[in-house]
């Protein structure tokens, strides 16, 4: 199974009702080596250093699948507005929030079944699934 299979998949509740489509897939990245504040400060003081040589960079380990972001109204990902506290530019933020109202995070442990044999791919949630906050 790939992330591409899950994106845009149709999400059904335990009773078969349509809940929306998968607009994004959330992972928890393990941070194995975190830079201290001194290293970040040195990077700021030396703007000529290329980004790849910066010291204030974390090293990541495994990426664990946390859950699926399900939007009941719109299939497109909308610039991350629905997941952050960003409020500007105001008209775009309002439009995106309206199209993604009701978006929730379905935990991966609440996913009962993923059927990838048909089109669209179907994701069915378990009975008593929780609607988590989509905020990052």
């Amino acid at each position: 199974m790939n992330v591409g299979d899950l994106l845009d998949a149709q999400v059904l509740g335990p009773d078969g009702t349509t809940l929306g489509v998968v607009v994004d897939v959330r992972f928890a990245l393990e941070v194995v080596d975190e830079p201290d504040d001194d290293a970040r400060e040195r990077d700021r003081e030396d703007p000529e250093t290329p980004l790849s040589a910066h010291l204030g960079r974390d090293a990541v380990g495994g990426a664990r699948l946390v859950g699926l972001l399900v939007s009941p109204h719109s299939g497109g990902s909308f610039l991350g507005y629905e997941r952050t506290e960003l409020r500007s530019p105001w008209p775009i933020a309002q439009l995106v929030r309206r199209r993604h109202r009701g978006t929730f995070l379905a935990g991966w442990s609440d996913v009962a079944e993923v059927r990838t044999d048909g089109s669209p791919v179907i994701v069915r949630l378990v009975a008593g699934f929780e609607r988590g906050s989509p905020a990052l």
């Binding site: 992330v3 591409g4 994106l7 607009v23 994004d24 897939v25 959330r26 992972f27 928890a28 990245l29 393990e30 941070v31 194995v32 975190e34 290329p50 790849s52 974390d58 990541v60 380990g61 990426a63 664990r64 946390v66 972001l69 990902s77 991350g80 997941r83 990052l136």
Partner: peptide, 29 residues
Amino acid sequence: TRERMVDARLHLLSRQVLDADGEPVRAVD
């Protein structure tokens, strides 16, 4: 260990992949 939350479409897909020398390899499909 600390964990950092990332979303596939927002942070990973279509991003440039750089090798250890900073040379571009491919983009994440």
